[in-house]
């Protein structure tokens, strides 16, 4: 007896993991970066707020 699996289910599952994982990683990194740069600019004082890390998105 030969095994017959629904191949597309596996394909969709693998793509979902890859795509969702990548998007989460990128999003989380951008948020963390912006938060850190804003904190640095805050610590440095408002006068230099624009020379530090301006959000670019």
């Amino acid at each position: 007896m030969h095994e017959r699996l629904a191949q597309w289910d596996f394909v969709i599952a693998a793509y979902a993991i890859g795509v969702i994982g990548t998007c989460l990683m990128v999003g989380w990194t951008l948020v963390a970066m912006r938060r850190a740069e804003m904190r640095r600019d805050l610590v440095r004082g408002s006068a230099r707020a624009n020379s530090g890390g301006t959000p670019e998105a």
Binding site: T22, V26, T29, L30, E37, R40, V43
Partner: peptide
């Protein structure tokens, strides 16, 4: 494509770490 994403994430995290260090130093 994924390598470019990886490069972008590494750069973004470098900026994050650098900003943390600079803020700590200032504090």
């Amino acid at each position: 494509g994924f390598s470019l994403i990886f490069g972008g994430v590494v750069l973004a995290r470098m900026r994050m770490l650098l900003a943390d260090i600079q803020a700590e130093a200032r504090l």
